[in-house]
Design a binder for these strands. Structure first.
Length: 559
RNA sequence: GACCCCAUCGUCUAGUCAGGUCUAGGACAUCAGGUUUUCAUCCUGGGAACAGGGGUUCGAAUCCCCUUGGGGUCGCCA
């Protein structure tokens, strides 16, 4: 088999939801392989399921791919990507093309019409299962007399078209990852290639499109492995050249279950059960009827919006599954891309961290791993941390700012650009994600009056324990704060360090921690001088005074 | 149940195709110390794997077979 001169790969999602990490990885491998081979990467939207496809979802796919930095040479036009001579790239716009090829198969007898109803077939399958044998369509329609078929078609009787699978020889397909995969004759059934609604099935559309779009390499998840023999026989019947297949193993959750959108639903169910909630929380906007239906039946899933509202009211984080989930959670696209590439592929040796350019230079099909991989969030997080730490300060400020503009605009509204800069930089060294600074720094943008001091252990330790107590020190240092000349980190540091030198044997923590707790309402904040700098003099003093005023309650709670 | 795929530390993997350099390397996680004004980071060190059984061979993580385990598919979804 001679290698085709120009490599053409494609990613062909069905727009029925968001791009999840498994799909993203397939797209990444297709893209990297095309780039490596100086070929073309195409994007095709497989929207032949009228019931489930939506325009919004295909838009989301494009957005997610774009964010990851995966560009496509041909496909839907979007922000400079796409276009091309072999379109249209939405299958729903290619129906006439499929019909043409469908007719050649029908005329040659390689395909035939079948009139069984879905109910009849379901019953036959049920029976086969009960008798513990593999179900295969019995080809009953082949015995129909041609005149009858003609008459039924003429009267508009609903029917599908099935492909007559040749069953003399084994079907052998070559896979770049798995090697030779062989299916014995007689195991494939005559699968449907045109549905009763006139739309081609996935199998047929894929084969026709891949041929017409000149696709040379099909890189996809192993859940498709069983489909490839079907595609191979169709390609043979239509006189098409078979592409090179490369089936990549699947991605799983740490517990071994398949990583899927359903995980969010499962997670919410578990939380609700744990908290023993009888009725839906009002803020979630779920009707009691929907709530009941959802809890009663595990196969019922909440709408995405409802699920997100419920998670917010329960104050829990839904597990990240889709590319967009990771984006919202503050992961960097280049990190997700790096991690995804490493899930099922490696450049060899000890090299782990690399960028898209490296991938495009080194990616190869023969280094794809055959065994399934579990998605390790901890490792992804560690990579994200590394990437943030090795970023320049300016880069971090810019990216955090862009992230805030999209997901946390309140931080930009509440701070001046200078304050935001200090906020960003003081958080950089311990941020694992772009979301971390905002999660740990809520207190920065909350009104002074809403700061409260829960009777938690660290709070008590910082304010109440010891002699003198933290509150005593806070009271003593208050005038020093009020007297600081220019309110910025260096001046604050000079003043407070000097005071600590004189009053706490130079132990800055003894005074820093009470101040921290007073202004933040908890034991965690950026370095104390930066924290006060960002807050400003007024907010700092107001919060300190409020904390001091709460002295008796705090001491009372402590005993 | 039928068909197909897979099998190295807890996890992702290097090594396997061309058997010896592997007392099996790296990363994440974990454990123990250390640095640090909190949290986090950071530094040093430790433990941790060739699923089991048969072959082939002077020699097997590497080749073959079986067993076991895991997974995928079995739709007028894609």
């Amino acid at each position: 088999m001679s290698e085709p001169a120009i490599v053409r790969t494609r990613f062909a999602p069905s727009p029925t939801g968001h791009l999840h990490v498994g799909g993203a990885r397939s797209a990444l491998f297709c893209w990297a392989f095309a780039r490596r081979s100086a070929g073309k990467f195409l994007l095709r939207i497989e929207d032949t399921d009228q019931k489930r496809s939506s325009d919004a979802a295909s838009e989301g796919f494009l957005e997610d791919l774009g964010w990851l930095g995966i560009d496509w040479d041909e496909g839907p036009e979007w922000k400079g990507n796409g276009g091309g001579e072999t379109g249209p790239y939405y299958q729903s716009h290619r129906l006439d093309v499929y019909e043409q090829y469908m007719n050649t198969l029908l005329e040659s007898g390689a395909a035939y019409r079948a009139f069984e109803t879905p109910e009849e077939l379901q019953e036959a399958r049920r029976l086969a299962r009960k008798e513990k044998r593999a179900y295969r369509y019995d080809r009953a329609a082949l015995d129909l007399d041609p005149e009858t078929v003609k008459a039924w078609v003429a009267e508009g009787r609903p029917h599908v078209v099935r492909f007559k699978v040749p069953d003399e020889d084994p079907i052998v397909i070559q896979d770049a990852v798995l090697g030779e995969v062989c299916v014995e004759p007689g195991t494939l059934e005559d699968f449907v290639i045109r549905k009763a609604d006139g739309f081609p099935t996935y199998h047929f559309a894929v084969v026709v499109d891949d041929e017409l779009m000149g696709v040379t390499h099909v890189i996809r998840g192993q859940e498709h492995l069983a489909n490839s023999p079907k595609h191979a026989v169709l390609q043979d019947a239509l006189g098409f050249q078979r592409p090179v297949w490369a089936h990549v193993s699947l991605i799983f959750n740490p517990d071994g279950s398949k990583m899927s959108k359903r995980d969010k639903d499962k997670f919410l169910r578990a939380t609700v059960r744990e908290r023993d909630m009888g009725s839906p929380p009002a803020e979630a906007g779920i009707s009691p009827a929907d709530w009941e239906a959802w809890l009663a039946d595990k196969t019922v899933q909440l709408e995405t919006d409802a699920a997100e509202r419920l998670a917010r009211t329960l104050d829990v984080q839904l597990p990240a599954i889709n590319v967009d989930d990771f984006r919202r959670a503050g992961y960097l696209p280049e990190v997700l891309l790096n991690y995804l590439a490493l899930l099922g592929w490696s450049p060899g040796g000890d090299c782990e961290q690399f960028d898209a350019a490296f991938l495009c230079e080194h990616f190869s099909l023969d280094r794809i791993v055959k065994s399934p991989a579990k998605f390790d969030r901890a490792k992804l997080l560690a990579f994200n941390l590394d990437a943030i730490q090795s970023m320049s300060e300016e880069m971090f400020v810019d990216r955090l700012q862009a992230f805030c503009a999209r997901y946390e605009p309140r931080f930009l509204e509440a701070m001046s650009p200078e304050q935001f800069r200090v906020f960003a930089l003081s958080n950089k060294e311990r941020s694992k994600t772009l979301l971390d600074p905002m999660q740990s720094g809520r207190f920065f943008i909350e009104p002074d009056e809403s700061i409260a001091w829960p009777a938690s252990k660290p709070v008590r330790k910082a304010l109440c324990k010891g002699t003198p107590s933290g509150l005593d020190r806070l009271e003593a240092v208050r005038p020093v704060l009020a007297d600081v000349g220019d309110w910025d980190a260096p001046h604050l540091e000079a003043a407070i360090t000097a005071w600590a030198e004189a009053n706490c044997e130079g132990n800055l923590g003894k005074v820093a921690q009470p101040i921290r707790v007073a202004v933040a309402g908890g034991p965690v904040s950026p370095p104390i001088f930066d924290t006060l700098d960002i807050l400003g003099r007024d907010a700092t003093l107001t919060r300190v005074d409020r904390c001091l005023a709460a002295r008796s309650e705090l001491m009372g709670a402590a005993t």
